[in-house]
């Protein structure tokens, strides 16, 4: 009987102040929170990239892939020279810009497929198996934009050089897992970034 009396005397906790606090905190957090996900694209300076290559064995081949972004389009070259010599001799870029609706459009998809078919796919197997003909700078690309090129174009060009096109899934053997995702990760406590996934030319150096 005493127990029942005690229970009757107890009052419910007043939750209203906590409710008020929560109702204030939630709109505040909703307003200040960022729902877009910010990521990064990792790039080197050309000088740092060259120093690293010199440290590696000298008897290996060098690809020396360079993409020049100009107002006319993309000029692609390797150590051997232009990848599209005929077009270059005519003063045309390998992949020209397209003018649509008064705007200039850079053909990122076309560049991605171009790099894949002309440079990545023919050399993929030998570089994967570390056979003769392996490039010391496999996976590296130097991107040289002209001064007036917009930053957005540079970022999209980096994407086109880094990611493999969809057809690579069916054409390349020994791809890691099933997806064509390429990313950099920095394990905790480590100084250097690690490359994960399937990439084309992810190690980019920007500038001259």
């Amino acid at each position: 009987m005493a127990k029942f009396e005690l229970e009757d005397d107890l009052e419910d906790i007043n939750l209203m102040p906590i409710m008020n606090l929560l109702c204030l905190l939630i709109p505040f957090l909703l307003l200040s929170a960022q729902f877009i996900q910010i990521g990064i694209i990792l790039v080197d300076t050309p000088r740092k990239s060259r120093v690293k290559d010199k440290k590696k064995k000298k008897d290996k081949k060098v690809m020396g892939l360079v993409i020049d972004i100009t107002q006319e389009g993309y000029y692609v070259s390797t150590k051997k020279g232009s990848v599209c010599p005929e077009r270059k001799n005519n003063g045309q870029p390998c992949i020209a810009v397209v003018h649509a609706g008064g705007e200039k459009k850079y053909m990122y998809d076309k560049l991605q497929k171009y790099l894949y078919t002309k440079l990545y796919k023919p050399n993929y197997k030998s570089n994967r198996d570390k056979k003769d003909g392996t490039f010391v700078d496999w996976g590296k690309v130097t991107i040289r934009p002209q001064d007036q090129i917009e930053y957005d174009v540079v970022i999209n060009t980096l994407d086109a050089a880094r990611e493999l096109p969809n057809e690579a899934k069916g054409e390349l053997e020994g791809l890691e897992s099933g997806s064509l995702v390429c990313s950099f990760k920095k394990p905790q406590g480590k100084k250097e970034w690690e490359l994960r996934g399937n990439c084309m030319f992810p190690l980019a150096a920007l500038g001259r």
Partner: peptide, 22 residues
């Protein structure tokens, strides 16, 4: 952007990560 990169290199910041929206 190039001016900023070159200035940063002079201050011995040699690696860059460009912010993007995923």
């Amino acid at each position: 952007v190039d001016q900023v990169l070159k200035t940063a290199v002079r201050a011995r910041y040699l690696r860059f990560s460009f912010a993007i929206v995923k």
